[in-house]
Amino acid sequence: MEAKRRPGRSRKTEVGEVRTLERGLHLLEVLSEAETLSLSELARRTELSPSTTYRLLETLRRRGFVDWDEGKGLWKVGLRAYQVGSAFLTRGGLIEAAMPEMEKLVDELNETVNLAVLDGNEVIYIAQVEGRQLIRMFTRIGARAPIYCTGVGKALLMEHSEAEVRRIVGAGPFKPYTAKTITTLEGFLETLKEARQRRYVLDDEEREDGVRCIAAPIHDNRGKVVASMSLSAPTTRVPDERLPALGARIRQAADAVSIRLGWSPHLTPG
Rank of each mutant, 00 (worst) to 15 (best):
G120R: 06
N121R: 12
N121T: 10
N121D: 15
N121K: 11
E122R: 12
E122I: 03
E122S: 15
V123D: 06
I124G: 01
Y125D: 12
I126A: 02
A127T: 05
Q128P: 01
Q128V: 09
E130F: 02
E130T: 03
G131Y: 06
G131W: 00
R132T: 09
R132G: 11
R132P: 01
L134W: 03
L134H: 11
I135G: 04
I135N: 09
I135F: 13
M137H: 14
F138C: 05
F138T: 10
T139P: 00
T139F: 07
R140H: 13
I141V: 15
I141K: 08
I141T: 13
I141Y: 00
G142Q: 09
A143T: 01
A143E: 10
A143F: 02
A143R: 09
P146R: 08
P146S: 00
P146D: 08
I147C: 08
Y148M: 07
Y148I: 10
Y148V: 14
T150V: 08
T150D: 08
T150L: 12
G151I: 04
V152S: 13
V152K: 02
G153K: 02
G153I: 12
K154C: 08
A155W: 02
L156I: 09
L156P: 01
L157G: 03
L157S: 05
L157T: 07
E159K: 14
E159A: 07
H160F: 14
H160S: 14
S161D: 12
S161A: 12
E162F: 04
E162D: 13
E162R: 15
